[in-house]
């Protein structure tokens, strides 16, 4: 479970996010991204999330998301990210989905 302690995930901090999450992706195959605090994501943010998803997938793992706020949800729908990465209303249901 990774909690993003940032209000924004955009072109400005996408690289920083990548360096932070890389060790997590190397250690774990199933990761939940908690976006509760994130108010804004742009296409670069989307790209970095997709990149994480692809890395985990290639290792037979998965990435799921929770705490997706309205503006972020809007973007995910626009680029159809919600069809690729599962989004859960809360942490519990996200965790449960992995144990299925």
């Amino acid at each position: 479970m990774v909690v993003l302690h940032t209000e924004e995930l955009n072109a400005g901090n996408a690289k920083w996010f990548k360096t932070q999450i890389t060790p997590v992706l190397e250690k774990h195959s199933c990761v939940i991204l908690d976006l509760n605090e994130v108010r804004f994501v742009d296409s670069s943010g989307c790209g970095i999330i997709l990149s994480c998803f692809r890395q985990l997938h290639s290792n037979n793992g998965d990435l799921k998301m929770t705490g997706v706020q309205k503006p972020v949800q809007t973007l995910f729908e626009l680029v159809r990210l919600h069809r690729i990465i599962e989004i859960f209303p809360d942490k519990a249901s996200a965790i449960q989905s992995f144990s299925r």
Binding site: S43, C46, I48, L50, L78, V79
Partner: peptide, 11 residues
């Protein structure tokens, strides 16, 4: 999901 960038103009 195969593409990580190039969404800008579309968005």
């Amino acid at each position: 999901g195969s593409q990580e960038g190039g969404f800008g103009i579309y968005i």
